[in-house]
Amino acid sequence: MRPEFYKVLASPVLWGILILAAPLPFLLPSYYLHIVILSLVYVALASSWNIVGGMAGQISLAHSLFIGTGAMLSTALLLKLGINMWVGLLISAAISAMLAAMIAWIDYRFRLGHLSFVLITLAFAEMGGLVVEGWDFLGGASGLLLPRDTGHFLDFQFGGSHGAFWVMLLLAVVCVLVNVAILNAPLGYYLRTIRDNENAARAIGVNVLRYKVAAMVISAVLASIVGTAYVRYLTFADPYLLISPVITIEIVLFATVGGLGSAFGPALGALLLVPLGEILRGQLGGVLPGLHYFIYGIVVIAVILITPQGLLPLFERLWKRRPGAAATRPPTVAP
């Protein structure tokens, strides 16, 4: 591990944000708390997707399969078999890991190109959706309703939106830190070489299959855990929300707008776009149906055109150019 990882871990900014954020549930009206929780869910999801989509450069559309497994399966295990949801979380994560490893292996074995990979991951996600809809055990098309959250921690209950906030904050931070860790570890180097030039990566000793599988599995396990926590917050396991490609598209969008491949870019994208989307919907949803989508779309297009590498690099440039920034002060040349 490079020392940079420990610097981030020990950074006062990280701990400062956490300490400032911790009391938010007591301060925010419930509508805004909901938006914050939703943002944290997407910070975690976009960061988990970034490991495959950003670092390894593989546009996977299978993310909803892992979120959906974490959400629908753990719920079904509890309701149908009485299995504790903590155990359900682990079982779902293990199954997500296996599905992820299988997809990565197929990609490697059949040397899928970029487009084939996108299409095959989409096909897996769609198949997951069909399985859920067609199988009553997983709730079928009507979904599953979790028992009320009475705050029993041992039953995976966190006491409604206050608890959900802290759980999501924790998961968001963990997902971002996993990104930081990978980028500062050998795996980050391997994934970036694979992304840039797979054959040349192999030629300098990179085991392409092993690290593609590793990226996909880490990404899927995180997504699955977030899925389980998310469904606990929502209480209703809705297949059309949790295992639909729409949620993947949103994640890809947030990660891309924030900055693919970087540790903080996807988080930044989610933190900006989720509240924007929710507020636009709240303000304009009643005015003209679809207007908020339109404005949202324009914002996204503008960002991508203005800063194709995402918002994070743009912010970094602005930060370096801020008045008084030492690094960019023009050199004083003696006349």
């Binding site: 970036r192 070489t193 992304r195 840039d196 030039n197 040349a200 030629a203 491949g261």
Partner: peptide, 11 residues
């Protein structure tokens, strides 16, 4: 063989 988004040191 080139790498688009890495530095020579990274490679």
């Amino acid at each position: 063989q080139t790498f688009a988004d890495m530095t020579t040191l990274d490679v």
